[in-house]
């Protein structure tokens, strides 16, 4: 079974986000990482292998040359090869899903694992768009995944607003990882060294012949209105009174 895992490069989610004098994001202090949800998606692919499926794991990222670092990490985590689709344009889910669809058609995987959302743009769209473009089934926000013995179906538990929903999807399908699907492993040094010999293909986006989708223009970014810290309360009776008042119960 071939599994395609989409990898996005994002600033460490614990980074402080500041704007510079021009109102652009100040990236000077950023540490760049694999989007946490994509790490979980990749870990799940590796676990499918460990559970006895014979899998080839292909990591794909669409970005500039800097993304090699994250794709190398993906190789060290267990991907067999990586594809970097070189694109300098600021990407949004419309165009990224078109490019991923082109990669899908080239690779013909049985399963695509992605993150449920990128922690930078917080769009939560790319996987669903990809599924629609390819007219494939989707199961988003997965917290458990099982692939049938014949590798024709997958059973997915999803974290939804009402609780946990279970779906069965026919493969190939697009599945997105939620936080509780697994806990990604630490990558040990031997794996990093071994990953150096794994193939990393660089592919100009223009060679994929994907359409550019209608997008979104950012006019400006700003910090949200700041809440100021209030006051400390020492006494439980006072706190109870404040709570009662705020809850509208006198």
């Amino acid at each position: 079974m071939k599994i395609l895992v989409a990898i996005k490069r994002v600033p460490d989610p614990y980074s402080k986000i500041r704007l510079d004098a021009d109102g652009q994001i100040d990236e000077s202090d950023f540490t760049w990482v694999i989007n946490p949800f994509d790490e979980i998606a990749l870990e799940e692919a590796v676990r499918l292998r460990e559970r006895g499926h014979t899998v080839e794991i292909v990591a794909v990222g669409i970005g500039d040359a800097e993304w090699e670092a994250q794709l190398k990490t993906a190789l060290a985590m267990g991907a067999d090869r990586a594809i970097l689709v070189l694109d300098d344009e600021p990407a949004d889910p419309g165009s990224v899903s078109e490019l991923l669809a082109a990669v899908f058609r080239r690779e013909q995987p049985d399963l695509v694992l992605m993150g449920k959302q990128a922690t930078d743009d917080d769009y939560n769209q790319t996987a669903q768009r990809l599924a629609a473009l390819l007219e494939l089934s989707q199961a988003t926000f997965a917290s458990a995944l099982e692939v049938s013995g014949d590798e024709k179906r997958a059973t997915v538990t999803r974290e939804v607003d009402a609780g946990r929903e279970t779906l069965e999807v026919s493969l190939p399908a697009i599945i997105t990882a939620d936080l509780r699907l697994n806990e990604p492993r630490y990558v040990a040094l031997p794996a990093i060294l071994k990953a150096r010999s794994k193939p990393l293909e660089r592919l100009p986006a223009s060679e994929l012949g994907a359409r550019k989708a209608a997008g979104v223009a950012i006019i400006k970014m700003e910090a949200p209105p700041r809440r100021s810290a209030g006051r400390r309360v020492q006494d439980v009776d006072e706190l109870a009174g404040l709570i009662r008042a705020a809850a509208g119960r006198s």
């Binding site: 600033p11 989610p13 402080k16 986000i17 704007l19 994001i25 922690t119 930078d120 743009d121 917080d122 209608a214 997008g215 979104v216 223009a217 950012i218 006019i219 400006k220 970014m221 700003e222 910090a223 949200p224």
Partner: peptide, 14 residues
């Protein structure tokens, strides 16, 4: 919102 609400983006669609 973007970046977990650290930024608010004002946007327009094409």
């Amino acid at each position: 919102p973007m970046y977990a609400g650290s930024l608010i983006a004002t946007v327009r669609i094409e």
